[in-house]
Design a protein around this nucleic acid. Structure first.
Lengths: 146, 146
DNA sequence: GGCGAAACGTTAACCGGTAAACGATCAGTC
DNA sequence: GACTGATCGTTTACCGGTTAACGTTTCGCC
């Protein structure tokens, strides 16, 4: 059991659990904040755009959007000039979540990395970036990502 | 969007994808190797034991075990002295996967961390351990983990 | 010895994510 | 102007994971 990857995976699981708990306090679940973040950045985007920005597949966005629409945080509307496109628009409720959710996320990062010095964080960023690069390269290079 | 947690998450996703691709070459999927690893270490364990060892819930192990049993890699048998317990036993096919899968996993770790020096790996381990600790502490401390 | 509580595995319902098949719309070409 | 191909979003089926409810079996105690 390769220890580094294992540690990385367990750490990610713990962080995800903490993030999910934090998001739940605002009625959201884990991936939903990424979708909303894309709309906070620019309203009226399409599922395809959001999927590319969040590095997930389009069907994932479709399902998330359905749930968020049910929750009253956004509405779907077909683009008028190109009927293939669907544009997602924030409701007031969806817009109102931006500040608290972003604050929650900053707080989480702050708390979770509280034990690290500035130097450690720099090294961590660098190391993770290298691993990320190696892993995506290993995937065949056919994965865009950021 | 906190950059460090985001980078950590994206990295983990890429690593998981690479691991999944590697496992698929042996007819396995992502979490299944952890279950098998528990049995390679000691055959005849129960779902509960394996769940605790792999840091997942018991139902997750139940479902994985069902799939692995369908694939002919293990069999379920009730413990004779305690009929509540179910013990999972490797088949020859399941045992035969140990060497190649462990080699594949070592190779993956090697490749993915190839760009890191020994010092960088040490620092990375240390930083991840700190984050892991902070995140689990944040979860209320009611999560055992390792 | 019988009865209630604890321990264990399973099932059901849900969530985020993927890949593959599908359907509808648009654009380019003959 | 109709046909063909590309471009979208959605649906379906699967996977790993979680929580909550359930049914058995065992154990402790009176």
């Amino acid at each position: 059991m390769p220890e580094l990857l294992d540690l990385h995976g367990r750490t990610n699981k713990a962080v995800r659990a903490a993030a999910d708990a934090a998001l739940r306090r605002h009625g959201l679940r884990l991936g939903q904040d990424h979708l909303l973040a894309a709309l906070w950045d620019r309203d009226g985007r399409t599922p395809g755009e959001i999927a590319a920005a969040a590095n997930v597949t389009t069907p994932a966005v479709t399902k998330l959007a359905a749930r968020l629409a049910d929750a009253g945080l956004l509405t779907r509307r077909r683009d008028e000039t190109d009927q293939r496109l669907v544009r997602l628009w924030l409701t007031d409720a969806g817009r109102a979540l931006q500040a608290p959710v972003e604050a929650e996320r900053r707080l989480l990062e702050e708390r979770v990395t509280a034990q690290l010095t500035a130097t450690e964080r720099r090294h961590l960023r660098s190391a993770l970036a290298k691993i990320h690069r190696s892993a995506t390269d290993l995937l065949g290079g056919d994965v865009p990502d950021a």
